[in-house]
């Protein structure tokens, strides 16, 4: 699956969609890491995510860890209800920076 990537105000925005499970999380991971390799700050839009399993969350965790090492911004944006429940259950909502909208994320600092 190829997830759409856009750019706005110096941020790369990757929009994950549908079911980010064991089948699709490798694609998500690859694209997240590719964006981070370009030394860009990255926002991951989760508004269209219907389901995310632990492998999908692991892709986000890896992105988060890599960004932290490289001192890049990594944040989640517009997290859908389904994704938010998973993050909250695992207390990962306290780990990732999470913003309601792209503008909120971009104007933050």
């Amino acid at each position: 699956m190829k997830y759409p990537v856009t750019e706005k105000s110096g941020y790369m925005i990757i929009s994950l969609t549908g079911e980010v499970d064991l089948n699709f999380s490798p694609d998500a991971r690859q694209q997240i890491l590719k964006c981070l390799k370009q030394n860009k700050n990255l926002l991951v839009d989760l508004s269209q995510v219907e389901y995310i399993d632990s492998s999908g969350v692991a892709s986000l965790v890896e992105g988060f860890q890599v960004a932290r090492q490289q001192k890049q911004t990594f944040a989640l944006v517009g997290v859908s209800r389904a994704a938010m429940q998973v993050l909250q259950l695992a207390r990962l909502d306290k780990v990732f920076p999470i913003f309601d909208s792209l503008d909120d994320a971009i104007n933050h600092k």
């Binding site: 965790v61 860890q65 259950l89 695992a90 207390r91 990962l92 306290k94 780990v95």
Partner: peptide
Amino acid sequence: IEAAAPPLGVLEDS
């Protein structure tokens, strides 16, 4: 008794 911390292996200073 809900999670009070993130999973292991995410943030080293959790």
